[in-house]
């Protein structure tokens, strides 16, 4: 499993080295441009509207997620994302509940030069979730053993993971952006209690997986200060 994580981290480093090298290609032949100092150009507030589709795709889950991104030169974006998730399952053979929050910190890199207020690029995040889960009236049936019913007391965990994303954001109305991103999430530590695996780690996804894939679908509002 550890080898798997190293493999992903190695692939990510190779990927970014390639992008960096590609970006530098022109500068081998022309006079290097003077580096533009980093300038704060604006703040976007976003809501992950994909989470509202839970009622159809994951009716057992109620969750929400928002983000702030800090625009530096339309090239680099400091990202803060946070959210809440709860799961309630009441079935004939078990009751399961999970509740927790998550927080992600990272950066996006805009590869566009021609339409700099839009975004097409890649991102990196470090995520952390704090959550607890428990189960009651868990019935285990078998052909030979008598029916066994048990409860599992609430257990609390911190989980850390790493994300790589590729996405787009476009300004559809003035100051209103729509964006998608495809995400690969790699578990780093915590929350993998084999004796009672969490069903869904807030912000990360399926608790039994080391790697989860995801798609975010965001609407952003750019706070219009100092914008021409």
């Amino acid at each position: 499993m550890r080898m798997g994580i190293f493999k992903y981290i190695f692939s990510i480093i190779i990927f970014f080295s390639f992008i960096h090298a590609y970006g530098q290609e022109d500068s081998l032949y022309v006079q290097p441009e003077e580096k533009e100092p980093l300038k704060f150009l604006g703040l976007k507030f976003g809501v992950n509207v994909g989470r509202f589709a839970d009622f159809q795709f994951k009716p057992e889950r109620f969750s929400y997620e928002g983000s702030f991104d800090f625009n530096l030169n339309n090239k680099y974006f400091g990202i803060i994302e946070a959210g809440y998730s709860e799961i309630d399952l009441e079935k004939d053979t078990y009751n399961y509940s999970l509740e927790g929050t998550f927080f992600k910190l990272g950066m996006d890199y805009n590869m566009l030069k021609k339409y700099p207020s839009d975004f097409l690029g890649i991102g990196l995040r470090l995520g952390r979730a704090n959550f607890s889960h428990s189960a009651e009236n868990v019935s285990i049936e078998d052909d030979h053993w008598p029916l066994f019913t048990t409860s599992i007391d609430s257990r609390t965990y911190n989980t850390y993971w790493f994300e790589v994303s590729f996405g787009v954001k476009g300004e559809l109305l003035k100051n209103v952006y729509l964006g998608w991103s495809a995400i690969v999430k790699v578990h780093i530590s915590g929350g993998k209690d084999e004796s009672f695996l969490p069903y869904d780690i807030p912000g990360f996804g399926k608790g039994g997986n080391t790697v989860n894939l995801g798609v975010n679908y965001y609407i952003y509002y750019q706070i219009p200060f100092d914008r021409k």
Binding site: K91, T93, Y94, A135, V138, I140, E194, F196, L197, Y199
Partner: peptide
Amino acid sequence: HKRNFVLISPECGFVVNFN
């Protein structure tokens, strides 16, 4: 052995894995 309780899906509920 050890017993591990895993919720494999909302429809299937819990299974017990053993070590």
